[in-house]
Every structure is written in structure tokens, then in C-alpha cells.
């Protein structure tokens, strides 16, 4: 522990990142450039999220890390251990007890409060990137609010699939101004982005930080005749019976057997402990 400064990064770096975060909060949805550092993990494993978390953590914080909703996957476990080692902060798997939650590809099912900060890992922060490869041009489009192109993508979806087939990283407009990539969360989570907690987004390789302050208007883009729909698998959870949570599909054998389970492991466990039982669930010990 004594070999590292608190939370790995040096204090000047954390100040720099905090300035970017504050600017991001002041201009919701705007991508603030920051001098992203080399982190002891490869790009694509959450280097942006880790730097934002490091800048946000204090000694009194309790950290929770999830990857696709789960606390026990590689990415989540290693980042949690990283901060246990370098910051010595308390960690938890319970959403309610955490004050800082770093996430990859999900928003927890339990409603977040004003006391909490949600940190997203972002691979590609620019929602217009796949339509317009030039950075100079996308910046100009943001500056001038020229977002027609975003709808061209949705148009293509409908013309090819008969419905808006974009299922994750579904573009949103923040507070009526900036179009933002909500990171690759399922579009099921989009409506939850109007929340009480602070949402921070870090993209390490792309060197961008952006933010959504509490209670900010976040609207998913759509067409009048093809409105936005938050979709999930049409099943209850096979372990806890929840019908309102986002589900993972698990293939059980090669005879076509499968089960659907909550992607949020904490939510699922809490429900089972409270006595809820799904089709294939066993009573929690």
C-alpha cells in the first residue's frame, strides 16, 4: 500500500482529471479531452473508468465494480482488487452500500441515490464516429448541433430490419443539447439514465471524459412512427423470478436447453435471499 499514492495516480493527475470531470458536469454530454495516463492494464479493459474512479475516490468511499452487471467476472474482480491494493478502500458487492460504482455495460437494477457516483467505462465516446470518421468534422457537428446523421443510422436500421435494431450504445440527447454515446449499455438501461446519482464516463484510449449530472433530461433518439423501446428478453429470471430485470441468456447443453438469469448478480442474490424463486432456482442457503 505504501508503495503507491492513494488510488494509484499522483495528486496532480487526479486534479487534472477532476477538472475535466467538473467541466463535463457543467456541460452535460460534452466530451472533455483529458491527458489520459498509461494504466497497468490494456486499453479496452476500463482504463478510462479506472482513472475517473481513482480521481473520484476518497478514503471513506465504498467501491463496487461490475462487468455486464456481474460482480464476479474477470474485469470486475481485477479492478476491485486493484483499488483494494492501491487505495485500501472498502469494497462491496451490494449496490446499496456502495458510494462509487464502476460499471462496464450495465446500470444496476436497484435505484441509485444522490449519495452515489456511477462511473462508466467507455470504449468509443463519439456517437457519430462510425458515420463520420473525421474528428474535426464530428467536433463541428457537435458544436453546431448537426445531428441529422445520427438519424440516418436509425433509418438504416429500420430499412434493413423493420425496427430500430440498435440494442446497445443507443444514442441519447442530453438536456436537449449534446448527443451522447451512453457507452455499450443495453438500451433497456437508457430510461434509467435520468437518475439521482452522478454519472461519469471515462474513455482512456480516446482520452475523453463526459458526465451527466443528477436529474438531467436524457432522451433516446427515435422516429415519430418508430418510437424508442427499452427491450429485454421476454422471460422471468430462472433463478429469482424477477420480471423487471435485464437478462442474460445461458446455453446449458447442446440439446437446446437454456436459461435466463439476471445480469445484475447483486439484484438476483438479494431477491433470492428475500425468498423469491424462479423456475430453476434453489433456495439460497
Amino acid at each position: 500500500m505504501s508503495d503507491y499514492n492513494f488510488a494509484y495516480l499522483d495528486e496532480q493527475t487526479k486534479r487534472m482529471i477532476r477538472r475535466a470531470i467538473l467541466k463535463g458536469l457543467a456541460v452535460p454530454g460534452y466530451q472533455v479531452p483529458f491527458a489520459s495516463r498509461e494504466m497497468p492494464m490494456p486499453y479496452g479493459w476500463g482504463t478510462g473508468g479506472v482513472q475517473v474512479s481513482a480521481a473520484a475516490l476518497t478514503l471513506d468511499d465504498t467501491l463496487k465494480v461490475i462487468d455486464q452487471g456481474a460482480d464476479d467476472t474477470t474485469n470486475a474482480v481485477s479492478i476491485r482488487q486493484f483499488f483494494e491494493k492501491t487505495a485500501g478502500v472498502a469494497t462491496t458487492e451490494e449496490t446499496k452500500k456502495a458510494s462509487v460504482i464502476q460499471t462496464r455495460h450495465r446500470i444496476p437494477e436497484a435505484e441509485l441515490t444522490e449519495e452515489q457516483i456511477l462511473v462508466y467505462q467507455v470504449p468509443i465516446p463519439e456517437p457519430l464516429r462510425f458515420l463520420e470518421p473525421r474528428e474535426t468534422e464530428t467536433r463541428k457537428m457537435h458544436a453546431l448541433q448537426e445531428y441529422g446523421l445520427m438519424h440516418v443510422k436509425l433509418y438504416e436500421d429500420i430499412s434493413q430490419h423493420g425496427a430500430i435494431a440498435t440494442a446497445y450504445a443507443y444514442p441519447v440527447k442530453v438536456e436537449g443539447r449534446y448527443v451522447m454515446d451512453p457507452s455499450p449499455i443495453p438500451k433497456f438501461d437508457n430510461p434509467k439514465m435520468e437518475m439521482a446519482a452522478i454519472q461519469l464516463f471515462g474513455a482512456g484510449r480516446e482520452q475523453r471524459i463526459y458526465a451527466v449530472p443528477p436529474y438531467t433530461r436524457v432522451v433516446s433518439l427515435d422516429f415519430e412512427d418508430y418510437p424508442f423501446e427499452a427491450t429485454k428478453a421476454e422471460h422471468p429470471c430462472d433463478l429469482c423470478g424477477a420480471e423487471d430485470s435485464y437478462l442474460d441468456e445461458v446455453i446449458l447443453d447442446d440439446a437446446g436447453c437454456r436459461m435466463f438469469v439476471c445480469s445484475d448478480t447483486d439484484y438476483c442474490r438479494t431477491r433470492r435471499e428475500a425468498g423469491h424463486l424462479g423456475r430453476m432456482g434453489e433456495q439460497a442457503a
Partner: peptide
């Protein structure tokens, strides 16, 4: 594209 750029939102 031009229609959407000037605000048409009806597929």
C-alpha cells in the same frame, strides 16, 4: 439525410 438534417423525424 438532408431531410433528417433539417429536422424530419417521421420514417
Amino acid at each position: 439525410e438532408r431531410l433528417m438534417a433539417v429536422g424530419n423525424r417521421h420514417y
